[in-house]
């Protein structure tokens, strides 16, 4: 049963989307706290520049491209859902999930190479922040993929199409976080 409470919309914003906005706001402060801590150490410790020189900029750039592309397919899924084309929306979401998978695979190769080279979580502060921030982000990628899989399943049979936008919005937020992580962890050397 849908209680009446879930169907009302006094603000004009659908309840689901409103909740995702608040979810994003609460995630901003989680990543914000971590990145603010990182930036103060980055500026305060000149040696971080040397440590950061060992990150793989090309892998980071490729992953940025992958996430931007998967965001695009999430938008296309939303547009399809708006037109009521559930199966097309679902296919677009599957493409987005594929993007997330490619992102994680690239990341795992990247991390394997780095750990082999002796840069682990506890090597020094830079690598601690590197693995913590990227790892927390990767967890969000995984969570987004799982959520999208459920939404895509419903969307195939044209059910709960409003949720396509909701997971999409979450995914764009994960994308934006990576847009900032990329220069912070890879480019600034």
């Amino acid at each position: 049963m849908k209680p009446i409470a879930t169907t009302r919309s006094a603000t004009g914003i659908p309840t689901g989307r409103l909740a995702v906005w608040w979810l994003i706001a609460s995630e901003i402060v989680i990543f914000g706290g971590l990145l603010a801590s990182y930036v103060m150490h980055r500026i305060g410790h000149a040696e971080f520049g040397d440590y950061a020189a060992h990150t793989n900029t090309w892998a980071g750039a490729f992953n940025t491209l992958v996430l931007l592309t998967s965001s695009l397919s999430a938008v296309l899924a939303h547009e399809a859902a708006e037109k009521g084309q559930g199966p097309r929306a679902a296919r677009m979401l599957l493409f987005t999930i594929l993007g997330g998978a490619v992102f994680l695979i690239v990341k795992s190769f990247e991390w394997t190479a780095e750990i082999r080279a002796g840069y682990t979580l506890a090597t020094n502060m830079f690598w601690s922040f590197y693995y913590t921030a990227a790892g927390l982000h990767a967890l969000h990628v995984i969570a987004g993929m799982v959520a999208m899989a459920f939404v895509a399943r419903d969307a195939f049979s044209n059910r709960e199409l409003q949720r396509v936008e909701l997971v999409g919005n979450y995914w764009h937020f994960v994308d934006i976080v990576w847009i900032f992580l990329f220069p912070l962890l890879y480019i600034a050397k």
């Binding site: 901003i28 914000g32 801590s37 103060m40 150490h41 305060g44």
Partner: peptide, 23 residues
């Protein structure tokens, strides 16, 4: 609302950096 949550992080940075970033 989203900008305000970013602004709070700037505030956090401003209050903390004088102790942690500076040596």
């Amino acid at each position: 609302a989203l900008v305000v949550s970013v602004a709070f992080m700037v505030l956090f940075f401003a209050g903390t950096a004088p102790d942690v970033m500076e040596h």
